[in-house]
């Protein structure tokens, strides 16, 4: 079985993640799309670990899983915090730092 198939799946997943980040407004979709991107990188590392027959790639993938956990913790806490303020999951309504943006809904 060729490793190119796995790379193709990972690249498709990466592109889907980027499409989700740039085209959707729900903060849950943003969060899950970021997770898809990180998971696709993990799949690439696992493929390289198999074809190069080294454990270093697997260890790096394991560390990225830890980073995914840390990112998920902070992102979900931030979602809860933002939802408590505005009762909204639309990312375009959080424009406090934008020029002329207001904290009012």
């Amino acid at each position: 079985m060729s490793a190119e198939y796995f790379i193709a799946v990972a690249v498709v997943l990466f592109c889907m993640g980027i499409v989700g980040v740039v085209s959707r407004r729900s903060i849950f979709v943003l969060y899950m799309s970021l997770e898809l991107i990180l998971n696709s990188i993990n799949l690439i590392l696992a493929t390289f670990a198999n074809v190069s027959n080294q454990s270093a790639h697997s260890v790096l993938a394991l560390i990225i899983i830890g980073i995914i956990a840390a990112e998920a913790t902070l992102f979900l806490a931030m979602i809860v915090h933002l939802y408590r303020q505005k009762r909204d999951i639309d990312s375009s309504s959080y424009n406090l730092l934008a020029q002329g943006g207001s904290n009012d809904k």
Partner: peptide
């Protein structure tokens, strides 16, 4: 990518990692 195909490897088990 190295020009190898996907083969059984013990490098991904808990001992090696």
């Amino acid at each position: 990518l190295p020009k190898n195909s996907i083969e059984f490897s013990t490098k991904g088990d808990i001992n090696s990692i």
